[in-house]
């Protein structure tokens, strides 16, 4: 595969990621106009990266760990931008840094793009995987927002508002993940004859689904409410195990 295109793709990705940091600073200084321009630029750079990979592999959306980390970075960054007005400046900059961190981790790995396996050539794949990444991003936002609750201890209105946002983010994340699992199940039925296999990635996806589904009920349970924020934070550990742990440390058929 064309090494020049691989290199240029990664350079544009790098620039797209660095703009996240600029966005965090611009938001801190309330430069709204520049935020729009920078977001647009970042989007163009990300799209060039994804486009170049799709061109090389003759396949879209993404199949390897390089593209997966880039996608997570993209999802966290742009979801944070969508929620920017409802997030505090500190939350926004933390999320931008998380997006950057996810994106920069791409440069740790050796990059040898390969053509996708035939199983990925189905409509269910682009429906299943990007939506699950979107839900990871929602849960990252929920975790960052819930951690900042400790800053609003004396401000009851801010506290209430924050709880509302966290629940809403989890609801959207859970909904997206549900859709992703439904599509994944349909794909599994056509590809392997089963919507569920005893595969680490699938087991941890069920774990995530149950965990965050359970968390949706925590607002109705006064005896558990004090565990709410720690549980949202712990949820990220589960997301990371599902996303990274099963890919690196298990014998999953899902390489990424």
């Amino acid at each position: 595969m064309n090494p020049n295109l691989i290199f240029s793709g990664k350079i544009t990705l790098f620039i797209g990621i660095i703009i996240f940091l600029i966005l965090g600073i611009l938001n801190f200084k309330d430069k709204r106009g520049l935020i729009w321009i920078s977001s647009g630029l970042s989007l163009v750079f990300f799209l060039f990266f994804f486009g170049s990979r799709a061109f090389l592999k003759e396949f879209f959306p993404f199949t390897d760990k390089i593209e997966s980390f880039a996608t997570l970075s993209f999802m966290i960054g742009f979801l944070s931008l969508i929620y920017r007005k409802r997030l505090s400046k500190k939350e926004f900059i933390v999320l931008m840094l998380l997006g950057m961190l996810s994106g920069l981790s791409v440069f740790i790995f050796d990059d040898h793009p390969k053509f996708p396996t035939p199983y990925l050539r189905t409509i269910w794949y682009p429906l299943h995987v990007p939506i699950s990444f979107l839900s990871y991003a929602f849960w990252f936002l929920a975790a960052v927002c819930s951690s900042s609750i400790y800053c609003f201890k004396k401000d009851l209105t801010a506290l209430k508002q924050n709880r509302f946002i966290v629940t809403e983010l989890n609801r959207h994340g859970f909904n997206a993940f549900t859709l992703s699992m439904v599509f994944g199940g349909i794909w599994g039925y056509f590809a392997w004859g089963a919507y569920f296999l005893w595969d680490p990635k699938l087991i941890w996806s069920i774990i995530l689904w149950f965990y965050y589904g359970n968390l949706l009920h925590i607002d109705n349970l006064p005896s558990f409410r004090k565990w709410r924020e720690p549980m949202y934070l712990f949820g990220i550990v589960l997301v990371l195990i599902t996303f990274i742990g099963t890919g690196f440390f298990s014998r999953s058929i899902h390489k990424f």
């Binding site: 774990i207 359970n214 589960l238």
Partner: peptide, 15 residues
């Protein structure tokens, strides 16, 4: 809620 958390724990153990 407790049963849901137990499912999470036992599935993680099983994995």
């Amino acid at each position: 809620f407790i049963l849901g958390l137990l499912v999470v724990f036992v599935l993680a153990l099983g994995s």
